[in-house]
Design a protein around this nucleic acid. Structure first.
Lengths: 368, 368
DNA sequence: AAGAGTTACAAAACCGATTTCGGAAGTCAA
DNA sequence: TTGACTTCCGAAATCGGTTTTGTAACTCTT
């Protein structure tokens, strides 16, 4: 029962002025049936006493928490997702302007995530949720939809009709990517993707295939490698694709993390990124700028996305129809220096790579 | 007044069983004065109805929110701080085990930060705060101390006696760093630091000087460059120090972000990092592993720090004396590949650098 | 068998706000 | 002057829990 010292309640204010607490409340909530004189006296007292209404008490009556929730998936041990960090930053900034707060929790498994969602919903700690890394068939979307609990998704499920979401046109981006690489002179273009349960990964794969088809480039399934969406995955994907008899001269990666792994792999085997091998990432992470070479990537401004998603959720809470709050944005290709015209044919690249493999030249700390 | 559909209250449970709601509450809170029969019936009903107590109502009576707060400083536009992202990740994981949640807000200026702190304290949205990037003379520490509001700091102020904190022994780390570089053969060792209002920056500077003094290496103030704690700052710091008549052959950077900027600068002017110029960072960011060359850095595991700090705060809330909750940890030097014996003397380095400057060879996207 | 303790629970107070309801005082028209 | 409206505000209900208080029904004592 530890009372916070110096915590002043509405009763204190009422007593100080000599009015009923309901009157104080009405003044603070801009009711019009209060005389100017009383209003002034009350506001004066509020300022003097430094009164701020208890969020808890207000929430109890109002049924709103002025708090949004986000549950972020965390792997086991591996570092925080830089994309999510920026995304959350964007949300927090947007909410700040509206006096709302953000509750951040983590979940280490799909079950745990639903459990956490359930707890937060049942105990009414938040008014709505923001969900990220949306899956093709997302249990969170199913759960919240069924509970009719407000939420907004960053990314879409396979059936995106019934809820609010903000997404990037992943198909278009990757189709553009293919076209771009083709125009640079690449004919064998590889794709390093992630689990197809992640819708963005699936969509980008579709975009990649559509891009090839539109150009009339024959589609070679060998050129698609699905990996963990991480640096390690990129490393492994690069190895898999470059080991082919006719390896791709360009690699389109589903995330920057993958691309970073690819760059690392190329460095290890002395392949020059941007000429011997072209690498394009996706996410526009600031860190890409500091790679060697600086990473060419599709950018979608995580921060901006966070802000948009937050505002959409607020619209939902204000009663707008979620179905009217769906938006698709374009990704922009930020050309830095990891893409360029191929310096050799796939066959030559293959020969070079095999040679390097045998002589195992550049060995860094990072083994594999 | 939108009632959440399907929200079942304690009254529903009580009515369902035919007892008073106080009885239900006592069962749920493990009071002993309830007969086993009644207890069983109530628990059964709770399960059947899927009842979970409203956090808000409980908090109102209890005076606790089961929520901790963190206010993260955000610059204007620049990306999220990766260190903080991991730190928050660590906090969230620790809290999850205890059923507590984390409220994350941002602040874009010192005033805004205090304002936010004030709002959250006055409205009692959180039980305690975690403060980061502690300054030598930190207004947040002053504010919370004065309000007697529970908090824990990551890092110390100049007078760290009266509150709970967790910090790294920055002096020792940088003194070690100097010793390490000296033993590699470096005699002119540079320091790139940040605003001395940030205590960690000040402490590391002290450690640097102490390290030199212990070795009997004369201290040259020209070798200290204070910059923005960012990649840009590192870039500028490298330029400043390498332009000296007798430049340092090794650069000790206060953060990894600075070190990344230094590496970038060296790349631009064709200086080989790890031999021509040695660079050591601080933070142990995962991304450092993917730089070229992989960055040697002091690591303090942001995630681990987050967990520790969270547990300390919980101890404070449990009534432990904050003064007994102060801990200092050692940073560990993770040797990757950006440090090594100097390949030339300062004079030779100076000559090389001037030459490169005039011929402006490697120009990347990243200008300055 | 009567007074003293226990046991097990109902009833009510309480946390700190918001909101509804109702009524005293003042204003106005007839 | 009186009835009808306003204006302004006090009193009380309410949100959904927790905690205190009180008491009926038992169980022990002696």
């Amino acid at each position: 029962m530890q009372r916070i010292p110096g915590s002043v309640t509405i009763d204190d204010v009422a007593r100080h002025v000599g009015v009923a607490k309901g009157t104080v409340s009405r003044v603070l909530n801009n009711y019009t049936d209060i005389s100017d004189a009383t209003r002034k006296r009350i506001l004066q007292a509020v300022k003097e006493l430094g009164y701020q209404p208890s969020a808890t008490a207000r929430n109890l009556k109002r049924g709103r928490q002025d708090t949004l929730g986000i549950v972020i998936p965390v792997g086991h041990g591996s570092g925080a997702d830089p994309f999510l960090a920026e995304f959350i930053d964007g949300i927090a900034r947007a909410l700040d302007e509206l006096g709302l707060d953000l509750l951040v929790t983590t979940a280490h498994s799909r079950e745990h995530m639903i459990e956490t969602l359930h707890r937060l919903v049942a105990r009414r700690k938040v008014d709505g949720f923001i969900i990220t890394r949306t899956e093709v068939n997302d249990p969170r979307v199913a759960f919240l939809s069924e509970k009719e609990f407000p939420f907004v998704a960053h990314g879409r499920t396979s059936d995106p009709s019934g809820y609010a979401w903000f997404d990037i046109d992943n198909e278009a981006a990757f189709a553009d990517g293919v076209r771009h690489l083709y125009s640079l002179g690449h004919e064998r273009i590889g794709f390093i993707g992630g689990s197809l349960e992640l819708n963005f990964a699936l969509q980008r794969l579709h975009g990649y295939r559509q891009g090839l088809e539109a150009l009339g480039v024959p589609h070679d399934p060998d050129l698609e490698s699905l990996q963990d969406v991480s640096e390690k995955g990129g490393f492994a994907g690069a190895r898999a694709l470059l080991s082919l008899d006719r390896p791709p001269t360009a690699l389109l990666c589903v995330t920057d993390a993958l691309a970073i792994g690819v760059v690392q792999f190329c460095r290890k085997y002395g392949l020059k990124v941007g000429s011997d091998v072209t690498v394009i990432g996706y996410d526009g992470l600031p860190v890409g700028e500091y790679l060697d070479p600086p990473l060419t990537t599709f950018s979608q401004s995580a921060q901006d996305a966070g802000g948009r998603v937050a505002r959409k959720l607020i619209d939902v809470l204000d009663g707008k129809d979620p179905k009217s709050l769906q938006a698709l944005a374009k990704a922009v290709l930020i050309r830095r220096a990891s893409d360029g015209a191929p310096s050799m044919t796939p066959d030559e690249l293959s020969k070079l790579f095999r040679h390097r493999l045998n002589h195992q030249p550049h060995s860094d700390t990072k083994g594999e």
